[in-house]
Amino acid sequence: MLKSHLDVQLLNLLAAGMLLISFAMLSTRRTQQLITLFAWQGAILFLSTSLVAHEAGLTELYFSAALTLILKVITLPLILHTLIKRLGAQWDNERLVNIPITMLVGLVLVIFAFGLAQPISLLATTITRHTIGIALAVILLSFLMMITRRKAVTQVIGFLAMENGLFLAATSATYGMPMVIELGIALDLLVAVFILGIFFFQIREQFDSLDLHHLESLKEE
């Protein structure tokens, strides 16, 4: 197995880029920007997966990289864009609670994830084992994003970003999941976005808004 130093550094750089995009997603207010960022995150994931595939010489990983490219960089952002256009929510500006505090919480999460991943990465034998911490951090940050958002669309983007993190974790810990599982997850994601898209319309019809706060109170006249 080839272990060139430059490639490892490039992989680390790509993983760091994913972390940076996670923070950018945490702090953007505009839904459209969020979708663009999500597409970029997918693109970085595609690059790093193909690099790992090249390094480890695994043809399977090339397939999952291609799957990432088709699904997360092209299809899902397109679906989301058309969805928010249909919903008339392109220019939605979300009021977020205190961004600096969210950022600090995110920072604590990153430290936690790095600490948690340290013993795991010692067990792994892959060349990308150092990025497990970053993958965990991306997952936790997406969780945080889902918690802090109120709008339905942005929560779904948080959910998709979380899957990106899981995928990164899988590739860095064990060179990806078996092909069947990966295909299954991809299909799940696609179906989930379709179903949630239908939900969006239902929610909007009921409450005239996509704000999920309306779902919290019981409607009993």
Partner: peptide, 22 residues
């Protein structure tokens, strides 16, 4: 500015996680 501070701290963390290991 909080964003700038945070990004710089992230750099430190990433260095400690990745740089030290490599």
């Amino acid at each position: 500015m909080a964003m700038a501070f945070l990004i710089a701290v992230l750099g430190l963390l990433v260095h400690l996680l990745l740089g030290a290991n490599t």
